[in-house]
Design a protein around this nucleic acid. Structure first.
Lengths: 191, 191, 191, 191
DNA sequence: TATGAATGAGTATTCATTCAT
DNA sequence: AATGAATGAATACTCATTCAT
């Protein structure tokens, strides 16, 4: 048989990487970091353990790649929510957040779990700190346009509030009144 | 020679238990549950692994004792913060919370981590769910006296906000503007 | 208080020893050697672990004492079964054996289990070998009086048969036809 | 380099499994179940402890495999001993049994030990109970053809006798008169 | 004589990682 | 690029035994 071309190889590599990361996300987000073994990930991805180490030099590196991608995805979406009307932007952000919590709570779970493993995943700290500044800045500009006095303080409040709701929803799950909170916040901030 | 008296034994047991729990809290709160091994705890406590099992029948039981103690301590203090003046009560609660975050962030970390391990530590989940209802109820009564329209919604907001600030402070640590937030919240709610 | 007299001490020692051995027999016979810990024996006997080591220098020694006593007890009883009529003696032996199996199967279990741990309890081998010679000799004399040609061979057969029935009864317990076998043997040998 | 072919892997796996089972049989049959640790087995087999768990999910499963194999081997042989002449069949069975006791007393030891651990190895108990019924039935049919009155009773007697001889031979080993017993039994039953 | 707190070597089992093919 | 057999260090936990009182 003829050897694979470099182009074919690149495509193969990309696909294998994709399969591994998808499997890892699925398992780690729903079972947790320690409860997910490399063997499980390889099996779920349909590849051998050896191949996995061909793409990621360690379990830690694999998880790192996962987190970076998750944050990236979040960014792209958030950018689409901003319109010219600040009230509209704020409403979009709130609605988007609650939909995320309803549909992809695992994203939150993954990030929250890894953040608590500060020593092992120091880089999460750095990313989170940067993101937080971005979100606070974005909200500050919106809230300032809406006439809030201490727009920075209010922006910090909202940022923390979102994560607080997120963690509560993770903690008490179906008992958390996501709908009521969504209504309350849109009323409070967007009327 | 006669054997130790029951009183002597009780004292010895109390002290050993204390040493083990202190070591366990220190390590688990800063490294996390699975990153802390029984061997590490025993070494830190200066006792043998065997002795640890003389006091706690499993790693899980040890952590359980830790959490129950942490909650107990928190409760006793919170009760003293309520006065007749709702504005005063609210101020006390806010100040107490920020002091906790400054002085014992590990409490938050421990409880947050374990709460997310719902399968393994269901009792933490149950306690937290109960506490959350209590806090919301307490805040609702205070805010209602202060004349808030949707006191329940505001109470939920504040409860989530506290945990949001808590997790942000854990994530970005010294970079989090605890002082600014404290000032902002006391201004916003207590003037 | 006045010190205990030597006589009192001897009595105390004897009683403590008795309690420990009874507890040990009860537990080891029903749970097995490895499944019975020193802690369990001490608790069942109502004494401390320390005291146990005051009387027996190791778990092995304690079990050794147990076995020696069990064999001794068996001997005393067997001697009372022999009468002048060989047919009567044989019948007594058979009936006694089946009653033992019905009422004290644990005796058999204990001896059988320990015998299989040859390396650890070598002395059991020696005792068993001696006893077997005694039993074979006794049976040989009875069977020879009853006119059996190869009385030695028949005596060996009967000795092995008893232990074979014993082990089968231990293996399949209530499913073993003890009554039918007893009838069969008394018919075959004592009519 | 290309990965090993499935055929190569199968061969490798078969060999490793064999090494582990041989080592386990050797050690468990001569030292007993709990006196044989996984570490000892791995060392004797010349593999790592980890590899052992690649083939057997627990110590219990490993022992189970051992026992099943031992029974299987025994069955194949026993089937070849039955001929049309009942006297011949009986003689073959007796001779086969004594040869087994001479050559593979460890089989007996392994199975006897495990059978007594009913709680842990219920399947052994079940297999043994079934085998016992089979042997009794087979012997009953042979003895009935030979004209015995109570063929069932005699068959039970012989079955128990075999195991009795087995355990005596295990207990007193080289002191047991296997040859004399073999001669006695063939004379008694096959002339 | 008697106690029970303390030890430490031992147990079965897991799992990230390596490496021959 | 890909495989999976093999490793070994680590894990939670047990228990016979010691020893200060």
């Amino acid at each position: 048989m003829s050897p694979r071309t470099p182009i074919q190889n690149t495509a193969i590599r990309k696909e294998s990487r994709r399969k591994i990361m998808d499997a890892a996300f699925l398992l780690v987000a729903s079972n947790g970091y320690e409860a997910t073994s490399i063997a499980m990930i390889a099996k779920e991805a349909g590849v051998s353990k050896g191949l996995l180490y061909n793409y990621f030099s360690s379990k830690e590196e694999l998880i790192k790649a996962l987190v970076l991608e998750a944050f990236d995805g979040g960014d792209k979406i958030a950018n689409n929510l901003i319109s010219e009307d600040p009230r509209e932007s704020l409403r979009n952000l709130i609605i988007w957040f609650f939909n995320e919590m309803r549909e992809h709570p695992e994203h939150w779970r993954l990030i929250t779990e890894l953040t608590l493993k500060i020593e092992k995943f120091e880089f999460v700290h750095d990313i989170v700190a940067t993101k937080m500044v971005q979100y606070v800045t974005l909200l500050e500009s919106i809230l300032s346009k809406l006439g809030y006095d201490d727009a920075l303080g209010e922006a910090r409040l909202l940022t923390a509030l979102f994560d607080g709701i997120g963690i509560h929803a993770l903690m008490i799950r179906e008992d958390y009144p996501l709908d009521a909170m969504e209504r309350f916040l849109t009323n409070k901030y967007c009327n």
